[in-house]
Simulated assay, not measured.
Amino acid sequence: MHCSYFDAARCLSCTQMGQPYADQLAAKQLHCRTLLADHSSLEWLPPVESRKAGFRNKAKMVVGGSAKNPTIGILDAEGRGVDLRECGVCAPGLLACFPVLAAFIGQAGLTPYDVPRRSGELKHLIITESPDGELMLRFVLRSENLVNRIRRHLPSLRQALPQLKVVSVNLHPEHKAVLEGEREILLTEESTLQMRVNDLDLHLRPQSFFQTNTEMAAALYRQGRAWVNELAPASVWDLYCGVGGFALHSADVSREVIGIEKSREAIASAESSSKESGLKRVRFQAGDATAFAVATKQAAELVIVNPPRRGIGSELCSWLEDSTVKHVIYSSCNAKSLARDLAAMPSFTARRVRLLDMFPQTSHYEVMVLLERS
């Protein structure tokens, strides 16, 4: 894949852009193998390839310029907007939205936030597309000043984009290099975007996390389900469960499944999916994954962990090491923290590993490891 933005040095986010895909994948495999070289018993399953372009289901776009002439993309080193409306890694359904949203910004008079001057209101647009082509749109604003204006003009936007299902405003008043704030204002009756993944309908709320590559997320959950079904544990914990992907895919009448996640929004989404699917032995709980494990008297036979880039940390590693847990499925987006955590659990042997190319055109990837107590 080639990108005119990358070639012109306007956006260098996709650091592997222009390199043959086979070379990208081989480099990721080598990187992962090097980090996990101490685990000589590992069986390396074939990597799961992704589409090279149009794979992102979510666009997090900075809004710059002016209301009459907005940019939708990123900021340059001076804090000025760089327009990326034709970004090739975004799904076609997202690309089709950008011109409509640019017109809406002008129509509604939404003044973009000027980072150097610390003035203006509209900071970001966060757009997610479901496998069915429906959309969730979030306006990230500096304050509530534009909320009523967006409400007033929203019918015209929904007429132009009939696939819009969920629209909200996120308030981010601070001048900080973070994408969004804590408070969300829902502008539509619908509050969740339905994400059909394999044979399950997952529900995504505005502040819930979901993988940015739907096809790779489906492969990730299929692999997790295959390992769980092969081992046939009586109980499973899905720690850092998000909207419940692993937990719901692990459900079976023969086992109890519990999902733990800090985000109450994500837990509400997971509970909706579980209820719709009629799963009787799956439950979800909002809370800290480590605190839950440490406080629970009876450990599950199998534990799935899917932590953020920092990994599961020393306390949870120590608890797993001393627990009665028989198997761990570790899904990681950072092989460095994965390797560190595995070294802290010497009672477990890494048996199988699979790399899934969640992020083509970059050096990042997802990797799953099946651990067995020695």
Rank of each mutant, 00 (worst) to 15 (best):
E144W: 02
L338A: 02
G81R: 01
S314P: 03
V305R: 00
A218S: 05
E189L: 09
I267Q: 02
D201G: 11
M216K: 05
C97T: 10
Q211P: 03
D341C: 08
R51I: 06
I74N: 03
L320C: 05
R310A: 08
C241H: 14
M17G: 00
M358E: 02
S332N: 07
H203V: 07
A218N: 03
D357V: 09
V62Y: 00
V236W: 06
F284E: 02
V305E: 03
L355Q: 13
D23E: 15
R85W: 04
K275T: 11
F55Y: 15
V197Y: 00
S347R: 12
E43A: 15
V167Q: 03
L122K: 07
P116T: 10
G79N: 04
R340L: 04
F139M: 09
A268P: 00
A291T: 07
V169A: 06
N306S: 15
T34P: 00
L12C: 06
A22D: 15
R149M: 08
R117E: 14
C333D: 08
V115Q: 09
I267M: 09
T128C: 09
G106D: 10
D76H: 04
C317I: 13
C3I: 11
S40Q: 12
A37S: 15
A8P: 04
V82Y: 01
V367S: 02
I185E: 11
K58T: 08
L95P: 00
Y21N: 01
K262G: 13
G313L: 06
S332A: 15
V197F: 01
L30T: 14
T290V: 04
F6A: 10
W44H: 07
T188K: 03
A293H: 08
L157N: 04
P20K: 05
C97A: 14
T111E: 14
S208L: 12
N306Q: 10
A77R: 11
N69R: 15
I258R: 11
S4D: 14
R281I: 06
R151P: 03
L171K: 01
P155Y: 09
A350W: 00
A344I: 00
S50H: 07
F6S: 03
K336Q: 12
H364A: 04
P99F: 14
E321Y: 10
R222F: 05
I127F: 13
T362C: 03
S66W: 04
L84C: 12
V82C: 04
I304W: 06
L371G: 00
E215T: 08
D132Q: 15
S263H: 04
R354S: 07
H364Q: 08
R149E: 07
G245C: 14
A26C: 12
E86F: 05
A343E: 14
A217R: 05
G311P: 01
L154K: 05
R309L: 01
D238F: 10
T324W: 10
A217T: 08
P233G: 00
T362R: 02
Q24L: 10
H153K: 09
E184Q: 14
L204T: 07
L342N: 00
S332W: 03
H124C: 10
M195E: 01
V166L: 12
S130P: 07
S130C: 10
S156Q: 13
L35R: 12
